[in-house]
Design a protein around this nucleic acid. Structure first.
Lengths: 106, 106
DNA sequence: ATCGTATATAAACATATGGTTATATACTAA
DNA sequence: TTAGTATATAACCATATGTTTATATACGAT
């Protein structure tokens, strides 16, 4: 694979917030406001991290009315699955979101 | 796996020079001066990249008299093999080094 | 059309990163 | 010991990166 493309991929993964996002999206697609809620970060910050992940083709987006849902893409990287499997389980965070009632709003 | 450790690992891989080094070490262990010769970069620059890779536990070193040979470590990463396999083949670069006579000097 | 919500983008700033030059350390050979 | 080679570290600088605040855009409901 091209080194430039690989470098962009690893740059995208070289940030704790973005690894958190990937770990969360591994469970299910989420919209920006849900990520904001779970990660306790500002919306612009999350948006910019998502943009980097999208540019690296690690996530893809799907619009549903006012919400934009992000999910894992990673088709182009043969090794992406192995990397995702090393990420910590985020089931608890997702559960917390659902129980807080902030899941349905999106 | 811990996100902090994973972040450090991806940070270490998020640079073209370091991916080049990993791609080269995939073939065989090399010392600093050989990497300097192959990558046409200054010695301090290579040294600092190697330090990052070593801190991330992606490479290990072995001293042999005045030379320090670096090789792939990555034991702690379950996915390291999959990532290394995505790196381009560097056989040619290694061959060039050997034929230039710069291999024996180290 | 207007308002409210969700998301993206821009500008500004502080910190991190990579390269260079200079210097220090470690080892070998004489 | 001294000289020469290999490597590491430090100081400096330019650029990249992540966060924040402010603003713009997109969509739905009224």
């Amino acid at each position: 694979m091209e080194l430039d493309q690989l470098t962009e991929c690893y740059k995208a993964m070289a940030d704790k917030t973005r690894l958190n996002i990937l770990a969360l999206l591994r469970h299910e697609e989420l919209c920006v406001c849900e990520l904001v809620e779970i990660l306790k970060m500002t919306q612009p910050s999350i948006s910019q991290h998502l943009r980097k992940l999208k540019q690296a083709k690690l996530v893809k987006e799907r619009r549903n009315s006012q919400w934009i849902f992000y999910s894992i893409d990673g088709e182009i990287y043969p090794f992406i699955k192995a990397n995702l499997e090393a990420l910590p389980d985020m089931t608890e965070k997702i559960e917390e979101l659902k129980q807080s009632g902030n899941k349905v709003c999106c």
